[in-house]
Every structure is written in structure tokens, then in C-alpha cells.
Design a protein around this nucleic acid. Structure first.
Length: 556
RNA sequence: GUCCCCGUAGCUCAGCAGGAUAGAGCGACGGCCUCCUAAGCCGUAGGCCUCCGGUUCGAAUCCGGACGGGGACACCA
């Protein structure tokens, strides 16, 4: 509907220009059609005339009049057109304008809303990528939900998408993990030095220590030189923790397509390759014994060290190599999902992209703000330093994956999120996921009721859509018709929260309709039309929930 | 000190490439089940969109500044 009208408007504009009614200036990239807040302003409003007025040096209302004259009734699309205010063109559409989407929704089913602007290009969404030094906590969970849903949205938009988890298994952190295990092991055997502050203090380390000592591999860890013991403990504990992370993500419904090890990157000499690229462009230099990347050449505040004075590579060095590797693997769209506390790192990495002669615009970093965990409005104490944090697993076990996923996506990613465990469990209005799921079960319930009453579900093409004459029905159908553009907007802007908001609104519109009007009717034609509408609502709710990785229950 | 993000109803937040009279949920108050699931719906109250300038036909939205809140500023990862 909207798209057709846009085409008609462009045609009308072209005709007017060809006829000399309007100066032959360039036309706007896209015609903007919006739904006015006020019903008296029509069903769709267009500001085209006001946009053109300036360059045409004409009164916007005069421009509007010329366009409207050329447009006519737009091939029967619009029932009435009027020029209002400073130069808005308001369109009043015919009764079938919105509801005729319904048979199409039923025909496309789960594919309704699927787009193809990705044209099969390869996109990578990298997310979580937590060091395997401890279990995932709630914050990681939010990042996982964001990354996973972005991947689904991009795939639904025509990209070939890979979800990747980058494992930082090469740096100091792993050695610290190994030492943490060793020191706890010594404690368990009695004695040992006091446990150092800057190590991993969580109880899970103690468990790992005793488990490790019980394995044949780790049995001798207290008898061998510290360096060896640390290396063994580090490797064993890292693998163990990573397996746990993988399990936690799986239980959370997150599918990681590829686990990418930093160590394997280094072993392959990828850093040297990346350095070679930078060197060839004269972007590396030595100073004070260290090797620096000229990040300032690409807008970063200062140059950055890539190899320290002691010969060790920085984390940044492997990150440069890692992102070069992503491009070399053929990904043309890179999305990195990071914790917002890393935001200062973005200019550096963007500079590195430019340094590698790639467009920094091909990389988008989505920053995810922290999660404040509450229980009935009271903050749940969390301190990573003391090793007391609430794990993702605990939250998912308590409130369920559906609830956690949906709630993690109810805010813009860059806004902090209050996550209340009691709300997440509530089976009421307070809990948006139940609200939406309940709308879906209502749809299913009505359909079951219809079948029980011997009413067979309608053949979409045979339904008389003109019977849907209520304002609520038109609204509902219009809302359904907006699903594809909402999806595209969410995917293009990498804003998954748009989907949860949309579903909440759609569910609300359906609840209102359901309460105000009976769907099943003795009037067979009316009943069939309403059932079709209800089915379409169900299909879109199910489709949207499925993109979120949230279940759409048949009954609750 | 430098830089980034934020400032919208009592609370938590939306507001899509600037559009006409500002949106939702919660909380508060008042209603609705002989009726397809009341796990729901309807109504009322509640706003100088932090402030001051600028851009324009038009600004919550864009730009500059002030104030307030958060964060980042390692040869850490």
C-alpha cells in the first residue's frame, strides 16, 4: 500500500516536471509517507511538497496542488486527498487499503516480512566473546540476546550470517586463571600464601581446583614447578569453563556458528601478516622500545602500542589481525557487540580498519549497556571483584530463557537496563513477554474454539474483506502491514528493541479488539473475515517471537 | 583535565532520516467476566521533552553553549 503510493507519487512528480509545471530538479531520494497522529489528518501524510518548495522557490501548497492534480486517485488507491497545514498532502485511503494484506500474510506465513536488501552478502555478528576465565553473568546474557537477534534479523534481511565467539585464550588473563586455580589448590591442601587480590576469587575456582586435582592430569600439580603447573591448570580450566559457557549459551537458545581462538590466530602468524599490511603503508613505528600503530592518522586520539617493550603483543594487535581475518574470510558487514565500558576502544579499532585499507563503515560496534539486576525493585548485590556475581545460568534457570531474552531486548542497547527477577517471572501485564505470548495463545484459543464449533478455517482468497469495517480491524491490519518495514528498520539500524516494542503494541491492539468484539460470529461471512484477521495476527506474533528466539505457545 | 553517552509523565523508558495537539508500561484513582482464557480490557489524573541560543516554513529530534547524571581515558584484557 505504502510502497505503491510512493511509486505513484514519484510518477506524478516526474510528469509534472516533464510538463514544466515544476522545475526539473532532482527528486528526494525517498518519498516519506507517515501516519499522522491525528485521524483527521488522514491515513497517510506526505511532506514532499514542503521538501520541494525551497528548491523550487514556490509556495509549498502550490507545489502540493500540482502534485495532487497529477496524482489523481493514484489508480484507485486513495479515496480522498487534501492539502493541509503548511503543505502536507493527506491521503484518506479506501476501506480495503489495509485489510488486503491479510491473504498475503497467510500465503507467506513465516516468511512474511522477509527482506533481501542484504543480497546474500556475508555478515558476521561477533558477540559475547568473554574470556574463558569464569562463567557468563547477566551482562553477557544481554549481549548474547542482542547479538543472536541481530544475527537473526540480518539473516531475515537477506544476508548470509555467521555468529562468532572470539575466545581470548592467549593473554595474561589465562595465566592468571591458571595461577588462581593453583593457589586455590594449595589452599585446599592446607597452607599456601594468602590468595592475591588481583586473581579470580569466585568459588567456582575452588571447585575447579579440587576437580582438577582429582584428574590424572592434575594430580601432580602441587609437585611440579609452578610455571608448568600454571600452564596445565590454565589450559584445563580454560577448556572446562569454555565448555560451560557453550552449554549456558545453548540453554539460552543462542547458536554460535563459529568459535574463534585467539591462540590459533597467533599460531598462524596472522599478526605478522596484519603488521605487514600496516608496515607497507608506513603506519607502524618503533619508539621507546615498543612498536606503535599510527592511529592518529585516522582520527584516534593517540597512537597505540601493538607490541610492548618486553616483546609481548598487546590485545589490540591480535584484534587488528582478527578483524583483518574477518574481511579476508569474505565478510563485508562486520557487527561487533561489546560491553559499553569498551566504548573508548571503538575509535582505535576503526582507525585500524582504515589502516588496513578497509572502510571503517563496514564495521559497526554495537555497545550494550549494563544490566541492573533487581528483585522486587531491590538491587541484587553484585560485585565482580569479589567474585560474587549472578550468572546467566542462574537467571535463565529462575525466570526461563523466553523471559530473559525478551526483557534483555526491551531497551535500546545503549541504555542501562533494570532487570527485575520477580517481574521476569510474573504472569501478568507487568511482564511484557507474557503479555505478548498471551496474545498469541488467545489467537490459538479462538481458532480452536472455531474448529470445535464446526467452523472450518477460511480460505483467505475467498474471504470478503469488506466485512472488516471496524476501526479496530483497520488499525490491526495496518499494524500487521507495518511488520516488514519495522523489521527492515530494526535490521538496518541494528536495533532489536524495535521488535519487542512492535510485538507489545500489536499484542495490545489485539487484546483490545478481543475484549471489545466477538470474533466468532453466526454471520458466516463476518466470522470468516474476523478469523482471517485473527490468524494473520497470530502469524505475525509467531513470526516476530521466532525472530527473538522466544516461543509462541499454543496455550498457557 | 580530555573525550564519549545520556537528560521526555511520580517511576522505567519509546519516539523510526526534523512534521501538525507528546507516547507506552508501571504506580495512583474509577469501572468491565450469565460472553471466544479477566494471565485481559476501558476510562481519569499526570509534561516549560533540563536550560539558553542557532539552523528552518516547522525542532523532543540537527548544531553550539551551560547545568546535571553515567562512563572511558595503560607498553591491562
Amino acid at each position: 500500500m505504502k510502497a505503491e503510493l510512493k511509486t505513484r507519487l514519484l510518477e506524478a512528480l516526474g510528469e509534472a516536471q516533464a510538463a514544466g509545471d515544476l522545475p526539473p530538479l532532482e527528486t528526494p531520494a525517498e518519498i516519506i509517507l507517515e501516519r499522522p497522529k491525528q485521524a483527521s489528518h488522514g491515513d497517510l501524510a506526505c511532506n514532499l511538497a514542503m521538501q520541494l518548495a525551497k528548491s523550487c522557490r514556490m509556495n509549498p501548497r502550490a507545489v502540493a496542488q500540482i502534485i495532487v492534480r497529477r496524482l489523481g486517485d493514484a489508480g484507485g488507491l486513495v479515496a480522498k486527498t487534501e492539502i493541509a497545514g503548511p503543505g502536507f498532502i493527506n491521503f484518506f485511503v479506501g476501506p480495503l487499503a489495509w485489510t488486503r494484506i491479510l491473504p498475503q500474510i497467510m500465503a507467506q506465513g513465516p516468511d512474511f516480512g522477509r527482506g533481501n536488501w542484504g543480497h546474500g552478502k556475508k555478515a558476521m555478528v561477533e558477540f559475547v566473546s568473554a574470556n574463558p576465565t569464569g562463567p557468563l553473568h547477566v551482562g553477557h546474557g544481554r549481549g548474547a540476546a542482542v547479538g543472536d537477534v541481530l544475527a537473526r534479523l540480518l539473516a531475515f534481511s537477506g544476508f548470509t550470517v555467521l555468529s562468532e565467539y572470539y575466545i581470548n585464550d592467549a593473554g595474561n588473563q589465562m595465566a592468571t586463571l591458571g595461577r588462581s586455580v593453583l593457589y586455590r589448590a594449595r589452599e585446599l591442601r592446607g597452607g599456601g600464601d594468602p590468595f592475591p587480590d588481583n586473581h579470580y576469587r569466585g568459588d567456582y575456582i575452588k571447585n575447579l581446583a579440587s576437580e582438577f586435582m582429582a584428574t590424572p592430569e592434575g594430580a601432580d600439580m602441587l609437585d611440579i614447578p609452578e610455571e608448568q603447573a600454571v600452564a596445565k591448570a590454565s589450559a584445563w580450566a580454560g577448556a572446562k569453563i569454555l565448555a560451560g559457557i557453550e552449554g549456558d549459551l545453548q540453554d539460552f537458545g543462542v547458536a554460535i556458528g563459529s568459535w574463534f581462538s585467539e591462540r590459533s590466530l597467533l599460531a598462524r602468524g596472522a599478526v605478522d601478516e596484519a603488521f605487514a599490511v600496516l608496515k607497507a603503508r608506513d603506519l607502524l613505528y618503533e619508539s621507546e622500545g615498543a612498536l606503535w600503530f599510527k592511529a592518529t592518522a585516522f582520527g584516534d586520539e593517540k597512537d597505540r602500542v601493538v607490541r610492548r617493550g618486553n616483546g609481548e603483543l598487546t590485545y589490540f594487535a591480535s584484534d587488528i589481525a582478527y578483524h583483518l581475518d574477518k574481511f579476508r574470510r569474505g565478510f563485508s558487514l562486520l557487527v561487533d557487540v561489546w560491553g559499553a565500558d569498551h566504548h573508548g576502544y571503538v575509535p582505535r579499532l576503526k582507525a585500524a580498519m582504515a589502516g588496513l585499507d578497509r572502510s571503517p563503515d563496514d564495521l559497526t560496534v554495537v555497545l550494550v549497556q549494563m544490566v541492573n539486576l533487581l528483585r522486587s525493585g531491590v538491587p541484587v548485590a553484585m560485585s565482580t571483584r569479589a567474585g560474587e556475581f549472578v550468572t546467566l545460568k542462574e537467571v535463565v534457570d529462575e525466570v526461563g530463557g523466553d523471559s530473559a531474552r525478551f526483557l534483555f531486548l526491551t531497551r535500546r542497547t545503549e541504555a542501562q537496563l533494570d532487570f527485575d527477577l520477580e517481574v521476569a517471572k510474573a504472569k501478568s501485564m507487568d511482564n511484557p513477554v507474557f503479555y505478548v505470548q498471551y496474545a498469541h495463545t488467545r489467537v490459538k484459543s479462538v481458532l480452536r474454539k472455531a474448529e470445535a464449533a464446526g467452523v472450518s478455517l477460511p480460505e483467505p482468497a475467498a474471504v470478503d474483506l469488506a466485512r472488516l469495517e471496524l476501526a479496530e480491524e483497520a488499525d490491526l491490519a495496518r499494524k500487521l502491514g507495518e511488520f516488514p518495514e519495522m523489521i527492515e528498520g530494526a535490521a538496518r539500524n541494528l536495533e532489536p528493541h524495535r521488535l519487542t516494542y512492535y510485538l507489545h503494541e500489536l499484542a495490545g491492539a489485539f487484546h483490545s479488539y478481543y475484549n471489545a468484539h466477538r470474533i466468532l460470529s453466526d454471520d458466516a461471512a463476518l466470522g470468516a473475515a474476523r478469523i482471517l484477521l485473527t490468524q494473520a495476527v497470530g502469524a505475525v506474533l509467531a513470526g516476530g517471537l521466532s525472530l527473538l528466539g522466544v516461543s509462541a505457545p499454543e496455550a498457557m
